[in-house]
Each structure stands twice: as structure tokens, then as C-alpha cells.
Amino acid sequence: MSWDDNWSASAACRNTSDELFVKGAEQNRAKQVCGRCVVKAECLAEALDNRIEWGVWGGMTERERRALLRRRPNVTTWRSVLQVAV
């Protein structure tokens, strides 16, 4: 599988407005959009590499991303990690 550098054009959420930038239980519904997305890994790498603090990105909430960043503080580029996982 190849990595899509222009991932946002293929994102399942590309035509949504603010539904991925919600709080609480609404985040679980937002994550469902990511479940069917073909560029989920690219999106998540973008959020992790840039330390984006708000919204659901790549199927993870900001809390989940912070926890992942704490567990793997030495990762300098998440693309390399997630590209292997895809």
C-alpha cells in the first residue's frame, strides 16, 4: 500500500464541516467517519507530527493522541511508524 501525500483530498471527512471537532461522547460518533477512511494513517501521522491538539484525527481523539505521544516520546516522524503499520 502506498502513502498518500495529498491525503486530505481522499479523506472520508473532506466534505464535513465541524463534526470531527466535538467533545465528549460525540467523539465516538466522529471516530466512525475515520473507520471507513482510506487515508486514516496519513491523517493520524499529520496530527501526531504536528501535535494537533483538537479534534478527531486518524480515528483518535486528542486524549488518545496525547497518551500515544507520552508512550512514544522518541518518535520524530510518525509517518515512518504508521507507514510500516499500514
Rank of each mutant, 00 (worst) to 15 (best):
G59M: 09
S80T: 06
V81D: 00
R51P: 10
K23R: 13
K40P: 03
M60H: 12
A47G: 10
C37I: 06
W54A: 05
V81Y: 10
V38F: 11
L68G: 03
D49M: 05
N15W: 04
S8T: 14
A85S: 07
K40D: 03
L48M: 07
A67Q: 10
V39T: 15
L68Y: 03
G24E: 02
R66E: 12
R51V: 15
N15P: 05
G24M: 05
A12S: 11
E53L: 10
T76R: 15
R29C: 07
A12K: 13
W3F: 08
A45F: 01
W57F: 15
V22P: 12
W78R: 04
A67F: 06
F21W: 00
V75L: 05
F21E: 00
G55T: 10
G35C: 06
R70E: 00
W57H: 12
D4W: 04
K31D: 01
R29G: 08
M1I: 09
L68R: 12
L69A: 13
P73G: 05
C13M: 01
V75M: 14
R29P: 01
W7T: 12
V33N: 05
W54N: 08
N15M: 04
N74R: 07
L44C: 05
A67P: 10
E26A: 15
E62H: 14
W78D: 03
R63I: 08
E46G: 00
T61M: 05
A30F: 06
C34T: 09
T16C: 06
E46P: 02
R79Y: 09
E46Q: 11
W57S: 14
N6E: 12
L20V: 04
R63F: 11
Q83K: 09
T61D: 06
A9V: 13
C37Y: 07
V84Q: 08
E53N: 15
W3S: 03
W78S: 02
D49P: 01
G58V: 09
